[in-house]
Simulated scan of single mutants.
Amino acid sequence: MFDEDLTLEEAMEELSSAEDFLNFFEISFDTTVVLVNRLHIMQRYHDYLADSADMLEGYEGNDKAIYDAYKVLLEKAYQDFVNSDAKTEAVLKIYKMQGPQTTFVSADTLLEGL
């Protein structure tokens, strides 16, 4: 739980790693899961927050309610990777791409700067 002398936003400004977030929200976690999936967990958490933005607006000014909602969403994001893997969850853009991506650059374009 965050220090009552700070707002939730102020307390969260100090968080910089997936472990910081999990500890802040008092979520027990397996270090191995976080080491392998930290970026995926945080991206999924971000996605869940974005999807819940309308609901969270209703909690404006109530740090305790927002804290509890954030905790539920982070726990859900973490559990997604306890029970699955990054490729299956396809959180990051690289996993959403269909086939190899190619870009054409003409020789004229390459020679323009010479």
Rank of each mutant, 00 (worst) to 15 (best):
M1R: 15
M1C: 11
E4S: 14
D5A: 14
D5T: 14
L8G: 01
E9L: 09
E9K: 09
E10V: 09
A11M: 06
M12A: 04
S17G: 03
S17V: 02
A18F: 07
E19H: 03
D20H: 09
F21Q: 03
N23E: 06
S28A: 14
S28L: 09
S28T: 10
F29M: 09
T31H: 10
T32R: 14
V33R: 08
V34P: 00
N37Q: 04
N37G: 05
R44G: 00
Y45L: 03
H46W: 12
D47V: 06
D51S: 08
A53I: 07
D54R: 10
D54C: 02
M55K: 07
G61K: 06
G61E: 09
N62G: 07
N62W: 11
K64I: 15
K64N: 14
A65L: 11
A65K: 12
Y67K: 10
D68A: 13
A69Q: 08
K71T: 10
K71F: 11
V72D: 10
V72P: 00
L74F: 01
L74P: 00
A77T: 06
D80T: 12
N83D: 13
S84Y: 00
D85N: 11
E89V: 05
E89G: 03
A90W: 14
V91N: 01
K93S: 09
Y95T: 04
Q98H: 14
P100S: 08
T103Q: 13
F104R: 15
F104D: 14
F104N: 14
V105I: 15
S106M: 05
A107T: 15
A107F: 13
T109H: 12
E112T: 13
G113L: 12
G113V: 15
L114N: 13
